[in-house]
Amino acid sequence: MTGYFIQAFIYLVAAVIAVPLAKRFGLGSVLGYLVAGVVIGPILGLVGQETTTIQHFAEFGVVMMLFLVGMELDPKGLWAMRVRLIGLGGLQVVLTAAAGSAIGWWLGLVWQTALAVGLIFALSSTAIVLQTLNEKGLAKTEGGRSAFSVLLFQDIAVIPMLALIPLLALPELMGAGGDDGHASLSLVAHLPGWAHALVVVAAIASVIAGATT
């Protein structure tokens, strides 16, 4: 238990030092956190062994941030930004995914892998971009609203991407990760790719339907 407190203390001290310095030099708090992580991790080796545990807290923070974004959106505002949301956001995702897939295929990747890589490069971090926009005072500007529309479309596009990924799995790689003892607890582990995709879509649709009722 003492080790956790020491690691938490190191993280807090690094953040307290790095973030104000980054803001003072006009770099933003996001870059300050990244620099602090590089210093206390790979450079000094003070932390890093507990990465898996920290990821759970980080994911929880991202989820809470998305809840805050959702609470600030109303149906009228969402409908008013439909042109930016579908037009600008859809264009960015499609073009970026196509460019990434083309580059991957040109480098010799099979088309399934190239498409997966392209879809990954079409996404960006909503948490990082929104934090940067708020710090720079650009969130309410025309460019900030356009950037938010693109980010929101990317978050929505993750749903069909998650359903598509199982269909892109290469047969020779399926099961290559080995059995870690949790496969028996999965209800979709032994389903074919198309059935796995349908389960993902059905699960997400059920969550959305339950939230709107």
Rank of each mutant, 00 (worst) to 15 (best):
G3R: 08
Y4I: 10
Y4D: 10
I6Y: 05
I6T: 04
Y11L: 15
A14V: 09
A15V: 15
V16I: 11
I17E: 03
I17N: 05
A18F: 13
V19E: 01
V19R: 01
V19C: 02
P20S: 05
A22K: 02
A22P: 02
G26M: 00
V30Y: 08
L34T: 13
P42K: 04
I43E: 07
I43D: 03
L46G: 04
V47L: 08
V47S: 00
Q49W: 01
I54T: 06
F57Q: 04
A58K: 03
G61R: 04
M64H: 00
F67N: 06
V69K: 01
M71C: 13
M71H: 10
M71N: 11
E72A: 15
L73M: 15
K76F: 00
K76W: 01
G77H: 02
A80K: 04
M81G: 04
R82W: 09
L85M: 09
I86N: 02
G87T: 12
L91E: 03
L95N: 01
T96V: 14
T96M: 09
A102T: 11
A102L: 15
A102N: 08
W106T: 08
L107H: 00
V110I: 06
W111C: 00
W111M: 06
Q112K: 08
T113D: 13
A114I: 01
L119K: 05
I120V: 15
L123M: 12
S124T: 14
S125F: 05
A127Q: 10
A127C: 11
V129L: 11
V129Q: 07
L130E: 01
N134E: 12
G137I: 10
A139S: 04
G144W: 03
S146K: 10
A147Q: 04
A147M: 14
F148Q: 10
L151D: 08
L152G: 02
F153T: 05
F153R: 14
F153C: 13
P160L: 02
L164Q: 02
L164V: 11
L167H: 02
L168K: 01
A169M: 14
A169C: 03
L170E: 10
L170D: 10
L173Y: 04
L173T: 07
M174G: 00
A176S: 14
D180M: 07
H182W: 07
S184Q: 15
L187W: 13
V188K: 03
H190T: 10
L191Q: 14
L191K: 11
A195E: 15
V201M: 08
A203V: 14
I204T: 12
A205W: 09
V207W: 14
G210P: 03
